[in-house]
Simulated assay, not measured.
Amino acid sequence: MNEEERRQARAFADLSYEGFRELAGRADLSRYQRIGFPDSLRAGREGAIFDDIRAKLPALEARRGLTVLDIGPGCSDLPAHIIEACRAQGHEIILVDSPEMLAALPDAPFIRKIEGPFPDCAPALAGLSGQVDVVVCYSVLHYVFAAGPLFGFLDAAMGLLRPGGGAMLIGDVPNASMRRRFLASAAGAAFHRHYTGRDEDPVPGFNQPSEGEMDDAVLLSLVARARAAGVDAWVLPQPPELPMANRREDLLLRRP
């Protein structure tokens, strides 16, 4: 990652729903930058990300005629992979995002677009309670965490899952605790020097609050919240070839 991409990563760290709307309309940005990533973290990598998504949500390609919901799909290659999988399997897919992001995605009879942030757009999802087979929410949850309320988002999404196996992947969740553990290792120190371009070791900062960041406590509280609501939930690792596997994890939920 060069200095310009490091600058972009810092600028993208604090985006809001309105901030993403502004990025989506900028013709001077790549499709990856419009979703808040430097090119080096997504260009040529979204096929591998999709492979991981479909491995964790096997119903997406193993079954036909499902109802699929993608919360915050953005406008890069990843939603194109998901949309194509839905077309091939005869699924209906519902895309929830800003008008600007949705305008960059294709229109087709099996695609339904709903404008607005989730769960504020819940009235447009009326009738889907307990009717959704697969929910994908990728690289979104940390922005929800910043805007709040996190449990309200989770509860609304879980309420859409179909009993008997409806599944949701909340993917690519930053974990400050995981990042600290990584930076405390020799591999993490080498990564830090390469990333920053400076010959200095990182300071992991154990035993201090993760102010403004998601950490083990936040992720595990979401697992506990889901399980208390009658939904099975697990924290899963990302495969090592994904761009941020050393500091991000996935949450998988399934309604029995």
Rank of each mutant, 00 (worst) to 15 (best):
E3S: 08
E3P: 00
E3A: 12
E4W: 11
R6M: 09
R6Y: 03
R10E: 14
A11N: 10
F12M: 07
E18T: 11
E22I: 12
L23A: 11
G25M: 07
A27D: 15
S30E: 03
R31F: 05
R31C: 11
R34S: 06
I35E: 01
I35W: 01
F37L: 15
L41W: 09
R42K: 15
R42E: 03
A43Y: 03
E46K: 00
E46M: 07
G47K: 05
I53V: 15
A55R: 15
A55C: 03
L57I: 08
P58Q: 08
L60F: 06
L60K: 00
L60T: 00
A62V: 07
T67I: 13
T67A: 12
V68I: 14
G72I: 07
L78Y: 07
P79D: 04
I82D: 02
I83F: 09
I83T: 08
E84I: 00
E84G: 03
E84H: 12
A88L: 15
G90T: 10
H91L: 07
E92C: 09
I94V: 14
I94Q: 01
L95D: 01
P99A: 10
A104Y: 06
A104F: 06
L105W: 14
A108K: 05
A108C: 03
P109A: 08
R112I: 01
K113Q: 05
A122W: 04
P123G: 10
P123A: 11
S129L: 03
S129C: 03
G130T: 05
V132A: 06
D133L: 08
D133A: 03
D133Y: 04
V134C: 13
C137Y: 02
H142Q: 15
H142D: 08
H142V: 04
A146G: 12
P149A: 13
F153W: 15
L154V: 14
D155G: 11
A156D: 04
A157W: 02
G159T: 06
L161I: 08
L161R: 02
G164T: 05
G171S: 02
G171A: 10
G171F: 00
D172Q: 08
V173M: 07
A176M: 14
M178V: 14
R179F: 13
R180Q: 08
A187C: 07
A189N: 05
F191N: 07
R193S: 06
R193Q: 14
R193D: 06
H194K: 13
D199H: 07
E200S: 12
D201S: 13
P202T: 00
P202N: 01
V203S: 10
V203A: 12
P204V: 03
N207F: 14
Q208T: 11
Q208E: 15
P209G: 11
E211W: 10
E211H: 13
M214G: 03
D215S: 12
D215G: 10
D215E: 04
L219A: 13
L219I: 13
L220E: 15
L222Y: 01
A226C: 12
A226V: 09
G230F: 12
V231G: 04
D232W: 09
Q238K: 05
Q238N: 05
P240Q: 13
E241G: 05
E241Y: 03
E241I: 05
M244T: 09
A245E: 03
A245T: 02
R247D: 04
